[in-house]
Design a protein around this nucleic acid. Structure first.
Length: 106
DNA sequence: GGGCTGACTGACG
DNA sequence: ACGTCAGCCAGCC
């Protein structure tokens, strides 16, 4: 792979369908870095526009971003809810239900 | 080449 | 369930 790590992160993220989410660890694992979740988070820190960054959540199925809307709700959660993702009262989503399997047509 | 940082994760008390 | 510590990886100075 001549392409840098972050480039693969963006490419993979761009392949995540609407209504599905992936964890940092999952992305890292898909790219061949099972413990590179931290590196993925670094890449996400500067993710370009047009990418569904909101579909990237932590291993606990919770949004990592602290960005919030004027309404007071989490931006990432609001964006995912708009895609049909249901959040738990604790602000968590079911990774087993919304977790993207790559190439999985579902 | 070495040290610091970050949108992470798992283990421990 | 909650707070803290150590390990991991890649980019920047």
């Amino acid at each position: 792979m001549s392409e840098p790590f972050f480039a693969r992160v963006y490419a993979l993220l761009a392949g995540v369908p609407r209504g599905k989410v992936v964890t940092y660890s999952e992305i890292a694992r898909m790219l061949g870095r099972p413990n590179g979740a931290r590196a993925v988070g670094w890449a996400m820190r500067s993710c370009p526009e047009g990418l569904p960054w909101q579909r990237v959540v932590n291993a606990q199925g919770r949004p990592s971003t602290v960005a919030r809307l004027p309404d007071g709700k989490l931006l990432q959660q609001a964006l995912l809810e708009d895609e049909g993702v249901i959040f738990d009262v604790a602000g968590r989503l079911d990774l087993g239900l919304y977790g993207w399997r790559g190439t999985a047509d579902g």
